[in-house]
């Protein structure tokens, strides 16, 4: 696919220069943006809602006190200026880079590696909060929820804890903790 868009970009550029018709900028910039994905601002391929399917996830940050299994969500935006969508985008970005460093796909990461990335990200949130002049609680958890469509037109929500901060105080675990699904509709 990249080759096709590269070809369209080159042909459009030649057409634009040769004919001076402004319409050539349309296929040229569209192809360039699709090739650039989201890596070269101001070009973007605007991927939002471009691949809808029966499951989707979101993340939130929670605080735990004595028992890591018992946690309460915190208003992360008020502490850091980062909204829940940004938390998810950062998670994806950190996970991808971590996997790249290990020369594997992000879907092949082990639960222990996932926990490690979650710890790194939670530390980053604390840093962002400090830069903003606020302070996050010491004991944090990064929680992921998967929403899945059911055949009857409803959905279920399954919660998993991706990792804790400080990790050493949290319960050691071989795999992320999954909670019972909450049913929608």
């Amino acid at each position: 696919m990249d080759g096709l868009f590269g070809l369209i970009a080159v042909v459009s550029l030649i057409g634009w220069i040769a004919t001076r018709y402004s319409i050539w900028c349309l296929p040229f910039i569209v192809s360039l943006a699709i090739l650039a994905e989201d890596d070269f601002y101001p070009l973007s391929y605007f991927p939002m809602y471009s691949d809808p399917n029966e499951s989707e996830n979101y993340l939130y940050v929670a605080e735990w006190k004595d028992d890591p299994a018992t946690y309460e969500p915190i208003p992360i935006h008020q502490f850091t200026g980062l909204s829940a969508p940004k938390v998810k985008k950062m998670w994806k970005s950190y996970r991808r880079d971590f996997a790249d460093d290990l020369h594997k796909k992000d879907t092949q990461l082990t639960p222990a590696e996932t926990n490690e990335i979650a710890g790194i990200l939670l530390k980053e949130f604390s840093k962002v909060a400090n830069n903003k002049g606020s302070q996050l609680p010491d004991h944090l958890a990064l929680v992921e929820v998967w929403i899945e469509a059911t055949e009857k037109g409803g959905w279920t929500e399954t919660t998993t804890v991706l990792g804790y901060l400080p990790a050493e105080k949290a319960v050691p675990q071989d795999k992320p903790i999954a909670e019972p699904a909450a049913a929608g509709l």
Partner: peptide, 30 residues
């Protein structure tokens, strides 16, 4: 392109994204 031509068939699943957006809006500021 990204949905391998299945966007139109699967577009009602944006309802799942609506649930996600509601949850994200909630968990940002509770």
């Amino acid at each position: 392109i990204r949905s391998d031509g299945e966007w139109f068939k699967n577009s009602h699943y944006i309802g799942i994204q609506v649930v996600k957006t509601h949850r994200q809006n909630y968990y940002s500021d509770l």
